[in-house]
Computed example of a mutant assay.
Amino acid sequence: MAHQLAIENVHITADVIEASEFIDLAQRYHVQAVPKTVINDRVEFTGALPEPRFMQEVLKAQS
């Protein structure tokens, strides 16, 4: 979902990292399960969310 938003909006970027290869980032964001999504270093959640819930989290990160 994050990548779809990034494709459709030039103001959004999305990155995927392999936690075992980027240990420093995994530690920084306290990754203990995947997928873990972090939005603007303000909102984060673990697991796949249904699209409406994902969008709620994106909007929450804006405010």
Rank of each mutant, 00 (worst) to 15 (best):
I23N: 05
V31H: 00
K60N: 09
V10M: 05
V10G: 08
T37I: 13
P35N: 11
D41H: 09
R53L: 14
A61D: 08
S63G: 13
E8P: 00
V43N: 03
L59E: 12
A14H: 14
K60L: 13
T37Y: 05
A14C: 15
D24A: 13
G47R: 06
A14V: 10
V58P: 00
L49N: 05
V58N: 00
L59N: 07
V16M: 07
F45N: 06
N40R: 10
E21F: 05
I39Q: 02
I7L: 13
V43D: 03
V43Y: 02
H3P: 02
S63L: 09
F54E: 01
Q32A: 12
P52R: 09
D15H: 11
V34W: 02
V31W: 00
A6D: 04
D41M: 05
R42E: 07
K60Y: 03
A48Y: 14
V31L: 02
K36L: 10
E44Y: 07
Y29A: 04
A6I: 09
H11S: 15
A14D: 14
P50H: 02
T13I: 13
P50N: 11
M1E: 10
L5P: 00
A26S: 14
Q4F: 06
F45D: 03
M55R: 13
E21G: 07
D41L: 04
A48D: 08
T13D: 12
T13C: 07
A61I: 07
M1W: 08
P52N: 12
S63V: 05
N40A: 08
I17K: 08
V43H: 02
I12M: 08
D24G: 06
P52L: 09
D41F: 04
E51W: 04
A48R: 12
V34A: 11
T37V: 15
V34M: 06
N9M: 08
A14W: 11
V16F: 11
E21W: 02
A61F: 06
T46C: 09
L25V: 14
N9E: 13
P35Y: 08
Q56C: 01
L25G: 01
E51K: 12
L25Y: 14
G47W: 04
R53D: 12
H3W: 07
S63H: 12
V38S: 03
I39M: 05
A2I: 08
V31I: 13
V38N: 01
T37S: 05
Q27W: 04
E21R: 15
K60S: 10
